[in-house]
Amino acid sequence: MSIMRYIYVLLLFFSSAITFAQDYVPIDTAIFSCSYFYDFQEDSLEKSSVQSEEMTLLIGSHCSLFLGTNELYRDSILLAHSNEPFDQNYLQRIAPLMQGTTIHRYCRYHIYNSYLADSILFTTYLNSRNLKVKENNKINWEIEANQDTVILGYKCLKASTELWGRKYISWFTLDVPISCGPYKFSGLPGLIIQISDTEKQHCFTINKVKDIKGKQQAIYYLNEDYAEITAKDYAKSLQYYFTDLYNRVSSGGFVTFQDEESRARSLNRLKSRNNYIEKY
């Protein structure tokens, strides 16, 4: 068992989101599934530092869930194996399935939006702690009259807002009268098809809309012992996480590199992650 523990710790170490034997509680059934490309600039000063992650929005009749598509895949694997005994074989079975499902640190979260409670629940795992953020989902949108376009065949209208230190322009459609969208964006009279800040550093663009009523895809809530913090504190602790990682890497006690160059490159990369979507 001690070897097992070791592997477990290792896995946790490299991918802090992998926790095993989790308690999944179904809270709704998804009606529609949308997928978005999330293109974001890691480094606010470097235009070429654009990263991309595919995200999924599951829309249920009472709430929606927004998360990385890889995260959804991971959840479904863990869920499928959740009844199995937590032994050495379990890890051997799970680990290969998890390969290649890395998720950028900026996209590691589950965002639940409850239409009824008008609230957003953001859960994540950072610095060895399960964290949650509760927020109101009210956003003050300004619909810009007579601005329209067609995206992916949906007639879209334009709305704008200012949130978390950025100005956003969103294109939503009345063709899908669901007050949902990517990330924490919602509250428009239709689905958000595309949203981006005016500097184009964070862009969500829809690329798939599917009706999954027949699929019985549950929206799960991961029941953990979460510490509640504010959104602002999360943004801060994310910054702390990168700084801490940077210090650990630069002091050499964490990872050894082949040569100075790859060490410098890796440090540079860590330093350049300075542009989380929420900046206060």
Binding site: Q41, V50, C203, T205, V209
Partner: peptide
Amino acid sequence: IKEVSVRGNPISVRG
């Protein structure tokens, strides 16, 4: 719902 699926939108923008 009008389903759409773009296997990678033929034209996409990144910065």
